[in-house]
Amino acid sequence: MSTDVAKDKRSLLGWLVKVVGDGAFVAALIAWIATGSKTGTPRDRGLMALGFFVSGVVDMADLWRKARQATARPDGSITVSFSLSLFLAFDRATANYAHGRPAWLTAFSLVILLCLVVSVGIGVYRLRRSEDERQRALVNGSLAFAFLATLAVVMVFAFLQSSNIGPKLEPSYVFITAAVAWFAALFVLKRRM
């Protein structure tokens, strides 16, 4: 939901689409809470995923619209966009049933995954558009540091794998290293630059 409503110029159709997207999110959330800790039937999970997915796609379109108009923020803050709705949709669509997952649900999950990758691209585009010179230097420097830290961890795991010792590389290890390194570098650079 946008907080700067007064400044946001949307057409009537845009507002209607946004209302539909937010409504779908709320409906899916209520359905999820009502389901509780039960796995739920594939149809119910598919419907919940659809609700989150619609909200995610509307958000993505809105992000794209804002990215095209974006300018550097006067307060110097850095905006990182993150599509929660699409992650929730993916979570709802990936139940592992004992008797196997229906093919249509797997196909739907793959579509959500594709949209997630696209939303990452749009998020990066928005970030690049809303930066001034200093912000750009901060983001590039911190991302470069995070990249090297992550690569070092992956190489250590590659070594362990080649020697047949130690644990296997899990995606979560890469994410944790990347996130910690990035935020730490951003924090330090913000104070120094």
Partner: peptide, 14 residues
């Protein structure tokens, strides 16, 4: 390096 980081993270996410 920043570009490579984003591409690599997208691969890991996928």
């Amino acid at each position: 390096l920043a570009f490579a980081f984003i591409v690599t993270m997208t691969l890991v996410l996928t």
